[in-house]
Design a protein around this nucleic acid. Sequence first.
DNA 1: GACGAATTGAGTTGCGCACCTCAGATTTTT
DNA 2: AAAAATCTGAGGTGCGCAACTCAATTCGTC
Lengths: 347, 347
Amino acid sequence: MNDEIDPSSTTLKDVAREAGVSIATVDRVLHGRPGVRKATVARVEETIERLGFRPHAAAAELARGLTYRFCFVMPKSTNVFMEEIQQTVVRERAWLTARRTRVDIVETDVFDANALTQTLEDIGPTYDGLAVVALDHPRVRAAIDDLVAAGIHVVTLVSDVPSSKRARYVGIDNIAAGRTAGSLIGRFIGGRKGKVAVIAGSLALSDHTDRFIGISRVIASDFPDLELMLPLEGRDDDETNRRLTAKLAAEVPDLVGLYNIGAGTPGVVAGLAESGRTGEVVFVGHDLTVHTRRFLLNGSMDAVISQNPGREARSALRVLQALARKEPISTAQETIGIDIVIRENLP
Amino acid sequence: MNDEIDPSSTTLKDVAREAGVSIATVDRVLHGRPGVRKATVARVEETIERLGFRPHAAAAELARGLTYRFCFVMPKSTNVFMEEIQQTVVRERAWLTARRTRVDIVETDVFDANALTQTLEDIGPTYDGLAVVALDHPRVRAAIDDLVAAGIHVVTLVSDVPSSKRARYVGIDNIAAGRTAGSLIGRFIGGRKGKVAVIAGSLALSDHTDRFIGISRVIASDFPDLELMLPLEGRDDDETNRRLTAKLAAEVPDLVGLYNIGAGTPGVVAGLAESGRTGEVVFVGHDLTVHTRRFLLNGSMDAVISQNPGREARSALRVLQALARKEPISTAQETIGIDIVIRENLP
DNA sequence: GACGAATTGAGTTGCGCACCTCAGATTTTT
DNA sequence: AAAAATCTGAGGTGCGCAACTCAATTCGTC
């Protein structure tokens, strides 16, 4: 297509010639190997700078002949969100394979600290890097720290273990997510007085408690006319959520807002529909799925707070690769945002 | 770190041996070169499939020795949003250079069809691919189509030329963006009756007209209590916007919502503040900048509709690279979303 | 079964770099 | 001044593939 000019095609040889040294010396400088006088190092570095030389990434990789092995440790459950992450990884496999990077997916019971710890200890050392949907538990933290100490790169995914030595957390700030949901509910209610209910999966999960903390704070500070009820636990289960919601809608006449912190949104929608209060009660939930997309379109939901699973998966992969190759990580690019989705900006 | 097992390290040689043919034949099959019997092609392909062989990307690139040259054609103006795009490109340069990809940025008057056409004709043919912030004009379209016909990959950025043969549009759906803004304004107003005003930069820009179409439609269909006023044109200028807004706020007592379609949001905020109606009038604008971020935090704005400039720049780069290398493009990854930003989910 | 055409094998070269060896040059120390 | 330590040059090898040549083999056709 265009091969007359070779952009920045300065090679090692060029640098060596320009600096008046041999290729071997440039190589020594480039890799910080010993045996070069300071003055020479400076001269070579100046030449590299002046020529704008960058080692040809493809050539370097080829010569190094390294291969990478990563693993995603994920929950067994059939959760749409987690499935999307896995599918993204699977879809990226061909591309990754061509770059001599292998990615496995291991499913385990991430809610069982012992099981998760065991998994990490068993399989961790066979990889260069791990992405873990982690439970915040002392034993899990210890397992992560051990892996990091052994030189294995670990990133937490979706759910963080903040006190651990993991290189990074790829996921959203759940307190902020809760605040966002609360603020939207408050504003959509538009001055009416009444109660706001919250349905959580389980308050043993830190992301769920974080979200509850978020909505509590924002309602308390910004919406004095609203009263936040104590959270109900529905185990992310459709049927349980349906029952809880129907009961709630029937027993609390001044219910004006509803926040489903976890999964099982179809159940909540069904419960609201039973009570005939769909649309009257402002309802915000999490995660964009085929269901929530439909609920937004037909008016059963007012907004969805979402984190893009595909983006998280790719971000985790990029971070793991960058860590393994000792390349810098672009914080801006790897920060996962809290998406607000309403009917009008559905992707 | 981990070099005992080589994930998917099947090479051309392995495939040749397994299929009982020579490396040359595998190479012929792999690149669709003629001179191989159908039966042999099938056998080789089967073997490739069975072994999960993927050509080592780094080796292939090295052997091919290709280099790529791309160019971003962008407006001259000192617009924060456009600047961010440019900065992202600049930041990615080191990485790109290591992959023998050179990216230039050319500034031109993209609002002048002749100037833009001239630029495209002049510099276009020296590149493998272009990302253009395009004006939708017949001459521009013709210039783009000519480039595409000459085998140069073209993507439109931020602003599209839908009827052209450009490979892709990297940016948001502006009608949907307008709908989103309108819907948020309507919901935040919360049942009050009144007027909603719109300030545009110039209705000669298709993205601005598109956004106006969007808000018009959603107000008409979803918020019968609101009356949308005719749009004012403020040329994206702070001072003009300030004057327009102050006049508006003074003359329209039942103003309940305000939508700034383009830039110059600080001016609008100043105008609202002068009239003492900040907070009372729901105000939504575009693009997250240092200014709009501050306005969200101090309550001068209720929401910002935003497209992430860094993400757009990287997406354009990825698309151009994929096109040049004839790799598939992941539509899901390259779709730019309409971000809703409120105080609570500020990144 | 002979002929030209189609198919296949064997081999070479080079991409740019990482990593290595070893001899020779230079500097520092004794 | 000699010995030791430190630096530097020249060169080689191989990573896996693309692209090519040329000869050898097989095929289809009459």
